[in-house]
Amino acid sequence: MVPVNAPLSHVQQEAAYLARLGARVRAWRAERGTTRKVLAAASGVSERYLAQLEAGEGNISVLLLRKVARAMEVPVEALVREHDAAPRRSRIALLGLRGAGKSTLGAKLARALDVPFIELDREVENDAGASLGEVFSMYGQEAFRRFERRALERVLKQHERAVIAAGGSLVTDPGTYQLLLDRSYCVWLKASPEEHMARVIAQGDMRPFKGRSAALDEIRQLLADRERLYARADVTLDTSGRSAKQGLAALRALLAKEEA
């Protein structure tokens, strides 16, 4: 029997390195919103080979890797370094609909961990010089998605450690969501529709339900529509029936358990 703490064999070390290399290529590609097909055309490396590389199965040559790096406009040394500068767990991203507790628990968790707390929606507002409602009304949803993507890219580059509160609809943008999944440890803060509704009302802001009589039904539908997307998070925490203090304790316990 091989001891649990036995050092990795040479073959295992090489496999682990190729897996890290593939993950970096995949993360950089996702950050740029580039499909594998587009990257293949830009780099001259076949799409099939890129798929193997990203899966950690391709022992790529230096020259081919250089082509891939140039096509993504990333230094090749950023791909081949031995260790990641910022492990995914160094950033905690909170997902969920409004009223799930992202802002409240996120701020408290960041203070407890002594890291910055960043709300992507506020970053979008700062970049646009307008409220979210104004961004949507003046520029439309596609422009909002571009603001959101740029804000996330900047946050990831500037903060190796942080707690990030993602906008409730970020998960519906495949490229931006994949970037968040690749570069941070994602927690879905889940709550019952009634709890979401009560918290939104308590906040005094009915956006995006203003003027709609069936707001609770709409929340139920949003949760149903996005459940599959939110479930892609690394872990899930149900905040229903929990105070902010209880929610924070449960969140920290969950993170500690997953880290063990």
Results as ranks from 00 to 15, higher is better:
Q178F: 00
S137M: 01
P3K: 12
A260P: 03
V200A: 04
A260H: 15
P75N: 03
H83C: 04
D238L: 06
G175Y: 05
M72S: 09
V115H: 04
L156W: 00
A30N: 06
E73W: 08
M206K: 03
R154I: 01
G241K: 13
P208H: 12
K157T: 09
T236A: 15
Q12K: 01
L156Q: 01
V115I: 01
L179K: 09
A78I: 05
Y177V: 07
L18E: 14
A51Y: 05
L248K: 12
S103E: 08
R146S: 11
A69C: 04
A198Y: 04
R32I: 05
M1Q: 08
A71N: 06
E194M: 10
M197L: 14
A6F: 05
G129C: 04
A100P: 00
V74E: 09
A128D: 04
G96H: 07
A166C: 15
Q178S: 15
V4F: 13
E218Y: 10
K108R: 14
E153A: 12
A214E: 10
G96E: 04
K157I: 00
A198W: 13
S192V: 10
G204T: 01
R150P: 02
A165I: 04
Y139Q: 13
T176R: 15
E57A: 09
R220I: 04
G106H: 03
F144C: 00
P7W: 05
Q141M: 04
A55F: 01
L170Q: 12
Y177S: 13
V235L: 15
R145N: 01
A16M: 08
R20S: 11
F117K: 10
V68E: 02
Y49H: 10
A27R: 06
W188A: 14
V155W: 05
N59V: 03
S131K: 14
G167F: 12
P208M: 03
G96T: 07
R199V: 12
L39M: 07
V163Q: 04
L251D: 13
A231C: 01
E148P: 11
L251M: 11
S213V: 12
H196P: 11
R48S: 15
T239L: 14
A42S: 14
A151G: 10
A233W: 07
F144D: 00
R212E: 06
R66V: 05
S169M: 10
P116W: 04
V135M: 10
N126P: 02
R26Y: 13
L216P: 02
D84N: 06
A41E: 10
P208K: 08
A143Q: 01
A78M: 09
A249F: 14
L18Y: 14
T34R: 02
R154K: 02
A112E: 07
L8M: 14
L156M: 03
L97D: 06
A6S: 06
K157F: 07
A6Q: 07
C186D: 06
Y139R: 15
V163W: 08
E123V: 11
Q13E: 13
S90R: 09
Q158C: 02
V163K: 05
N59R: 11
A162Q: 14
S240T: 15
K210F: 12
A256E: 09
R161W: 03
E73M: 11
K102M: 11
A256D: 15
R29C: 09
G133A: 13
G44T: 08
L248V: 12
A166W: 03
V135L: 06
